[in-house]
Every structure is written in C-alpha cells, then in structure tokens.
Design a protein around this nucleic acid. Structure first.
Length: 941
RNA sequence: ACGGGGGUGGCUGAGUUGGUCAAAGGCGCCGGGCUUAAGAUCCGGUCCGUAAUGGUUCGUGGGUUCGAAUCCCAUCCCCCGUACCA
C-alpha cells in the first residue's frame, strides 16, 4: 500500500479544537443535555481496532447531537486498576502505578490522534486516590446499611491469579482473565448483597432500551424462578430437610430426596455409619474437583445412600435420603426432592440405582394413569394416582398451587421465589485495587475506617513477588489503631474487584472536577442517565449488572434520584480479519500459515474471518493505519464497512477504497467553488436534492444508523454533484450553499476534512462549534423537480438496455429514437387502482369496480380488462411510494421527456429524439402496447 | 442439551409491519470517455433471455396469498451464550 498520508492536517485541527475548548461542556441551561458515553477502557499501552470502532461510533453520535443543538457530555477516562499492571510488575519489575501511568499516557496519545471530541478535563482514572476514595466511602455506607457483609464461604479461587473471583467471572469453570482452572476454597470474604435488588434489576430491564440479547442474558443471570419450599422431617432425627422445587405438582412422585455432598446434614446423617466412607469419597471427588472437571464429567450422575429416611409431608410415607453429585450446594437449599417420573436427572439417577419411578402426571387428559413411563415426562400435565383425595385431574399452575396451599396449611411448605444470582463477591487478594476500608480489631470486630480518614491509600513499600497478597508485606499499611477503641488493630488487606470502579464512573464524570464530594446531586440528576452508551457485548452480564445495581444502591443512599444508569445501549460488533482456516479440522490458524497446508491434516487452507487477536496474528495496528491514511480515512472505513452492531471484516482493499473517496472529497470544495454563475433549472434540483439528503441523514442518525448516514454524506452526495454537472448545472453560489450543509454531514466520520471545507468556503471559526440550520419538509415544487429527474434517470437506464438489444436487429448503430409515452387511460387506470389500494381496498375487488367505471365501455372492455389483469395488477404493487406519488401527481410525463430531449439524445448517442403520445395519430410505431405509466416504450431506428 | 442469532448474486453484505426486490453499498471483473501510456477520475455494464418490460433465483422441501427473501410447517447446516438451577 502506498499513500501520501492523511488528507488533512489532522493534528493542526486537533490543536485548534483543544485551544478553543469547543468540546468542554458545562450545564448551560438553554440547551437540552445529552450524555454520550463509551465503556470505560482498561489502559493497555496500545489502542486496538476495537477501541477505534467503539469511539468512532460514539464520537459520531456526540458530534451529531452537538450540531443538533444539544449540550453534550462526552468524557473519557481509564479503568486503570487491575491485574495486568500488577502481573507486569511481578514479571518485569517496577511498580503497577508507574506501569499504569506510562501505558495511560501512551494510549491517551493514540486516542487523541483520532480526533475524538472528548472533554478531556473530566478525565478520571480508577487508581487515583481522589477517585477510589469514593469507592471506600460508598463501601463504608454499605457496611453500615448491611449491603456489604463479610462471610466465611466456599469461593472460586484462581490459582494462577492467586485471588478469588465472583461467580460472573468464572467462565466454563475457568478464570475469565487468565483462563486458568478455578477451584472451590473456603475463605472469609466481603460480599455485596446485590440479591437485595434482584426484582428491581429484573423489572428495570423493561424501562431501558437495551438490545434484546443483553436483556435475555441478564434475565438468565438473575435467574428468577417461582416455586415452593418444602419441609421433609427426617425419621428419628431432630432436623428437617428443606428442599426447593418449581414443581410441587409432582410431590406425590417423590421416591427419594437428594442432598448435595457438601450439605451440612449429609455428614451428620452418615457419621459413624457404614455409609460414611462412601460419602467421604463422593465429597472429596466433587468438592475438591475443580468446577471445570465437574463439567467434563457432566452427566455421570453418582450418589450414595445414607440409610436414613424422610417422612413425606402429605402421605407420611418413608422416603430414602441419598447424597448425589448433581445437586449444587449453593443453589436453593442444596437439597432436592427427586421425582424420577417427571425430571430427567432424577430419572437417570433412579435407573442407575434402581429406585422406583412413579407416574403422578399424564400429559394427555384421557391418558391411562397406569401407563408406563419410558422416560421422564417433564412437561406440565394432569395429576393422577394421588394418594390423597382432591388432587387428581388438576393441571399445571392449578396443580402447583393446590399442593403449595395444602403444605402451607399444615405448616410444611410455602411458595417462594428463588434467584440464581448470588451476592457479589468483591474481595480480591491482590494489590492493584481499592483497599477495603475496614480495620479488624480484636475487641470491636470489623470497624469501618471513618470518613475523615479516607482514602486508605495503597502503600508504596510492598514487594511484588507473585506470591501471596503484596499488601501483607507492608507493615506501615497493616498496623493501625482501632478507630473505635484505639487499641492496636490490623487493616483489611483485601482490595475491591475492579468492577467496583466501573460501577459508578459515569456518575463521577458528571461532576469530575469537584473534589469535595463524590458528585453533586443536582449535577448528577441533570446529566443522568446516560442517553447513549456504547461498548462491547462482553459486558452484558458483569459490568452492566453491577453498574445497574450500584446506581440503585447509591440512589437509596440519597446521593441521586436515578433508577437506571444507561437509557440506551449499543453493543458494537467485533472487528474481524481473515485468518487461515482448515475446513476438515475446523480450526482457525495463525496468519503465518497463509498459503500453506494445514499442519495437522495437510489439506489446503482457505480463509475465514476471525476476531482480531494477538494469538492469530490477524491484528491491524491503528497507529500504522493512521500514519498511512489518516484518522479520517480509518474512521470513515470503520463506520461505512458495517452497521454499528454487526461484525465487520477489516479489509485493506476497502480501506484503500475509502482513501480514494477521501482524495475525491478533498477536491470537492475547489471544484464547486470554481463553477460559474449560470442559473439553470438544475439549481433548484440540487437544492431540493440536498434538502432531501439532509432529511434522510437526520433520520438515519436519529436511529443510530451510522452506516446509512455515512453513505449519504460520503457516497450519495458526490454522485448528486456529478449528476448536477452532467445535466448542465454550473452555479457556484448554489454550490456553496450545498457545501455549507454538507460540511456538517461529513464531520461525523471525517471531522478534520470537514474543518478544511469549512475554511475553504470562507466560514469563520470552527465547524465543530456550530449548530446546523433546521430543515423544513420538501414542498410540492421541490418534489416535482426531484421526481422529474428521477423519471429521467430510470428512463435512461432502461433505454440503454433496450438500445443494445435493438442494435442487434438494426443494421449498424441506432440513430434516432421515438419515446412513446403511455396513453392517458393507462395512467387513469393506474391512479384509480392506486387509490383503491391505498385506501385499503382488496385488489381482488378492483376488477368489479373497474368494470362499472367510466374507463370501460363496450368497445374497449376486452382491452382494458385484459390489460388490468395481465399488466397493471402486478405492476401496481411494484411502484414504490415515491413512484406512486408521481403517478398520482400532476407531473406530465410527456413534458418531462419533451424538455429533456437534447440531454437524452446526447446520453444515448443519438441524432434525434422524438416524444409521442401512444395511440395518437402521430404514433406509427406499433409499440404503444408496451408503454406503461412512467415507463414509455422506446423505438430505435 | 437448553437459550439466542444466522444461512441472500463471483466475494462481502443490506434487506423480514408480505408488494418499493433481479435484490442497496463495497470489493472484484468487463466496456467506454479522458490520457503517449500507466495511474487517477468520470460514464456505463456485470443471473438467463428478448425490440422488449419475460424466465429462474435469496440453505432444502412443502404450504398460505392476487403476490413471499420476507408469513406458516418440516428439514439440514453454521455461529454465539449457558453449563446438572431442582
């Protein structure tokens, strides 16, 4: 690829924007606020294409809203706590703070080079004590109100990161960050009770405009299920077993009860019995086994009996208690009532251990109650075989309620709602995060650090060895006096999950320069919630749930009045690039295998698009692209290559093509301003066309259809200019009017070029500070001129086709053409049919109307009716709305062609063009039958 | 397994409240103008057929309709989530 670098002096314009402060936002009072935000990035040293895409989308929206008269809050900052910096310190030496600052400076330079319109004064960074002080402040408030609690519990432990993880951070039994195996470990940890907000988090999804898949993911993760908690008394034992079930209607089908191996009762029941060693083996196997291995062995259901029994609450039957590896200790009560007849897992388990299977539901109302169960029938059904009267024949929800009510009545159960989501585990045993502001005192227990002592800063005197929590090596940090009793105490060494930082940063941005409080309530209320939030789908359940929770929790502390942080969310698609692909093996290989055979099976490799990744080597460096083509070209390509939400393929060729577009556009102001000052009919066409383009462009932007908007500004308008010139337009004062509006339009994707244009057309100041004029709707005259030209274009397209066919039959090339315009009765027929259909008439009924209309008489009946069903009926629906409007309008087809015969003969390379009314005395062509409204017959000679 | 999203012309990829769809845009390819030439740029073409406005096509097979890429049923394939949630 050879280029001559950026088209505009991009750095110059960036300096101008910066100097003038055009992107610095304050509450103005007279402009409506708009909050545009992109997801808080982790500051790796290099910006990648995913960032570029994300911010190109956000910047286009921010610029659009600004030029549309909004006061736009558009900030940027860094989610700068987290393990990569700490790991780098362990590996390469140095301190996470210095590494982070260095990376941040480097990525900031790269982001700034793209020309995004951020208010950089508001920049915030998680690792700044002035920021994380507020994490600590909120935490102490949560500690006071019971939202933050310390619990000794089995937690997910990642050995290679040497820290615990939240449930959401465990993907397929592996760590979301390092992909290492995750084990269960019992530890004392800090949790936030996100579970207090489950119902509100679920209901809130209906108030916000999130993509459907994100809503579904959050719903699944919250995992609401309605059911019944049932108490089973254990025979000759002082405790009960409580189970949770969503299917109380199958209660009579219970043939055993199963406990999780970790259930506290399990050990108690088998202690000192013949079953103890078998339980112990199962316990070791499941609880020590990493969750990853558990998943691999999924389906291998194993269990041990306990030799003990429960009493069925309704039938008083004795039911054996088992311990099974498929029961999860942390969901529900860690115990299940097993109904093999109507649950697949229980069926499998029962078959394996030869436990009886009972039918208590039939899936067809008239089915024989004694029919055999060949597999678990899990769908809802009618109750049968109930040993207690009053239940048989009940179906579905009625059946469930009947059992629940009965249990409630006798005090053996109640309806409850169970959630899948657990409290958010926020403790991390790592250095590079917000210290949890708690002091452990022997006498007073855990005590919150008083507000005036915040922030608890991270100490510098620590060593990064990769073993243990570095904070434990800092004596200055550890030793502290208890704030309550003043005796020597010890500081908490856990730090907070970095998702805490990103759970409220958007609130901080609203008042980022205020160092007295976290944010002013009125200011936050003014800007919030975020109107347009853009980022990757990967945060669908973690960040986007935590931030919603945190917003509600702060609201309940009285800090603001907002329920939901993000009003509308756009998840941008991935940036992909082709990589070698082996069809037989089904694997994507690194780019060094291009043009080689598969290293596994030796078959030839094809290419397939894959997410850009270092391991495949199919990455593209934004820096190089910006150096070679300029930020504008890269942004244009990224916005034009695909819709914001669709995946896009990086293509060097397409980038080149966009560079060509930029080269053309660079010359446009010079060309246009070089026009003469002739006035032609085309002037009003061009102005009407511009208006139409602006209207369409605004519509597209209002729906965040950036691809369409860019298509209009960078592809359609240049074509319009060409058409204008071709049709004889040559008026620079019209041209400069066009350029003025057009400059705004191109500023979304190519803001630097837009400033060049603005300057060239002699406007003063920066385009970035201007608000665009309002546009009115198209008036009748404007519509008519647009229609006439559209008619001409479509005519020419057809005429060219016909010409090449005709010339095969003529001797030599065509010299003349007769345009045979369709007769009035066809247009009248079309009008009549269109009005019938537009007013909601059934097309089938039209033929009856037609037969009785003035259009039809005895003589022409056959012709008109035949024409209707053969030609007009299919055509009526093919006309688009614009064309329909033209047909229904007064526009004279005959006149449109008459006025343009000279242009038509030039375009078609003819000596003479005649326009004739079909079925008139002048028509000697015999081709009138082919003429349709707006589509004349054309006869060459 | 369950949940979600897809299968469109040489490639890529829009398009699903049924008629604006032989189907946008981009890339590629072909022809023409301009040029000594190349490049750039502009104009035109790019399923088949025809002095005509017709045929066939949107994974496969059926159906509804005056009319289906778009709706319904069946079926095959691909991608992404989740992971025994009682």
């Amino acid at each position: 690829m050879s280029t001559e670098g950026p088209i505009s002096d991009e750095v110059y314009w960036q300096e101008q924007w910066n100097k003038s402060g055009v992107f610095e936002t304050e509450i103005s009072g007279d402009k409506p606020p708009f909050y545009c935000l992109e997801m808080y990035p982790y500051p790796s040293g290099k910006m990648h294409m995913g960032h570029v895409r994300n911010y190109s989308i956000g910047d286009a929206v921010a610029r659009y809203k600004r030029m549309s008269g909004f006061e736009v809050l558009y900030p940027m900052g860094y989610d700068s706590f987290g393990m990569p910096a700490e790991n780098a310190a362990i590996k390469e030496g140095g301190h996470p703070h210095d590494i982070t600052e260095k990376n941040m400076n480097s990525i900031t330079q790269q982001i700034k080079r793209m020309g995004f319109s951020y208010d950089w004064r508001r920049m915030i960074k998680s690792h700044d004590p002035k920021y994380y002080k507020w994490n600590q402040y909120f935490f102490t408030k949560f500690f006071e109100n019971g939202l933050a609690v310390q619990k000794f519990a089995p937690v997910n432990w990642c050995e290679s990161c040497s820290t615990v993880l939240a449930n959401e951070q465990v993907k397929a039994g592996r760590c979301w960050r390092c992909n290492g195996p995750v084990k269960q470990k019992d530890m004392s940890q800090w949790f936030l009770n996100i579970t207090d907000y489950t119902q509100e988090l679920l209901d809130g999804l209906e108030q916000i405009d999130f993509p459907n898949n994100v809503k579904l993911l959050q719903q699944d993760w919250l995992g609401r299920s309605e059911g019944c908690e049932i108490k089973f008394e254990i025979e000759n034992f002082e405790q009960d077993i409580e189970v949770f079930t969503t299917r109380p209607d199958t209660l009579f089908g219970v043939t055993f009860v199963t406990l999780a191996p970790e259930h506290p009762l399990a050990e108690m029941l088998v202690k000192d019995t013949e079953f103890e060693s078998a339980w112990r083996d199962l316990f070791e196997e499941t609880s020590i086994m990493s969750e990853f291995d558990r998943i691999k062995n999924l389906g291998a259901k194993k269990g041990v009996p306990t030799g003990k029994f429960v009493i069925h609450p309704l039938t008083k039957e004795k039911i054996p208690i088992w311990i099974g590896n498929f029961v999860i200790a942390s969901y529900g009560t860690g115990a299940v009532m097993a109904v093999p007849g109507h649950d697949e897992r229980d069926f499998e388990f029962a078959k394996r251990y030869d436990i009886p299977v009972k039918r208590v539901l039939v899936t067809k109302e008239d089915q024989e109650p004694s029919s055999e169960l060949k597999k678990a029938e899990t769908e809802l059904g009618w109750m049968v075989n109930s040993p207690v009267a009053g239940f048989d024949g009940l179906y579905g929800e009625d059946a469930k309620s009947a059992i629940s009510d009965k249990l409630h009545e006798i005090g053996m159960g109640k309806k409850i709602v169970q959630w899948k989501i657990r409290p958010w585990l926020i403790s991390r045993q790592r250095y590079w995060g917000t210290p949890i502001p708690i002091i452990h005192c022997k006498d007073c227990g855990p005590v919150a650090v008083p507000e005036e002592q915040l922030p608890v800063e991270l100490p510098r005197d620590v060593e990064f060895t990769g073993k243990g929590n570095p904070l434990e090596t800092s004596e200055s940090f550890l030793n502290v006096d208890c704030p309550k009793c003043g005796k020597p105490a010890r500081r908490e060494t856990d730090t907070m999950d970095t998702f805490v930082d990103s759970s409220w940063y958007f609130l901080r941005y609203t008042d980022a320069m205020n160092h007295d409080i976290c944010f002013d309530k009125d200011v936050a209320n003014h800007w919030m919630n975020v109107d347009f939030y853009c980022g990757g789908i990967e945060h669908a359940q973690m960040h986007l749930i935590y931030a919603r929770f945190w917003t509600k929790a702060l609201r309940d502390l009285g800090l603001h009045d907002i329920d939901e942080p993000f009003q509308s969310l756009l998840c941008q698609g991935m940036v992909n690039k082709a990589a070698p692909w082996c069809e037989p093996c089904g694997v994507t290989l690194p780019v060094e295998h291009i043009d080689k055979n598969c290293p596994h099976c030796d078959s030839p490799l094809s290419l397939r698009s894959a997410k850009m990744s270092k391991s495949l080597g199919n990455t593209v460096s934004p820096e190089d692209m910006v150096d070679n083509f300029g930020a504008d070209t890269v942004r244009l390509f990224i916005l034009f290559a695909a819709n914001p939400t669709a995946g896009m393929d990086w293509s060097d060729k397409a980038l080149q093509a966009n560079y060509k577009v930029m080269q053309q556009m660079e010359k446009i102001p010079d060309n246009i301003l070089g026009w003469g000052n002739e006035e032609t009919e085309m002037d009003s066409w061009l102005l009407a066309r511009l208006k139409q383009r602006v209207i369409d462009w605004k519509d597209a932007m209002d729906e965040y259809d950036l691809r369409r908007a860019v298509e209009l500004s960078h592809y359609e308008l240049p074509k319009d200019i060409n058409w204008y010139v071709r049709r004889g337009g040559n008026n620079s004062s019209v041209g400069s009017k066009v350029l003025k509006s057009w400059s705004f339009m191109i500023a979304l994707a190519t803001p630097h070029l837009a400033e060049d244009w603005w300057k060239q057309i002699g406007e003063s100041g920066l385009l970035a500070s201007q608000v665009m004029d309002e546009v009115s709707d198209l008036n009748e005259q404007e519509k008519a001129i647009l229609d006439s030209e559209e008619l001409l274009k479509s005519f020419l397209e057809n005429a060219r086709k016909v010409k090449s066919i005709a010339e095969r039959h003529l001797e030599g090339s065509a010299q003349q053409a007769k345009i045979v315009v369709s007769p009035d009765w066809k247009r009248d027929l079309a009008k009549m049919a269109l009005s019938h259909i537009i007013s909601g008439g059934n097309p089938k009924q039209f033929i009856g109307l037609l037969a009785n209309s003035e259009l039809v008489n005895d003589e022409n009946k056959g012709q008109v009716m035949g024409f209707w069903s053969k030609r007009m009926l299919p055509q009526v629906f093919k006309w688009d709305d614009d064309t329909r409007e033209i047909i229904l309008s007064k526009l004279s087809e005959f006149k449109v062609f008459m006025d343009r015969t000279e242009f038509i003969s030039n375009e078609l390379g003819l000596v003479r063009v005649e326009v004739i009314m079909a079925e008139s005395p002048e028509d000697d062509t015999g081709k009138a039958g082919a003429a349709m409204p707006l589509s004349p017959a054309i006869v060459y000679s």
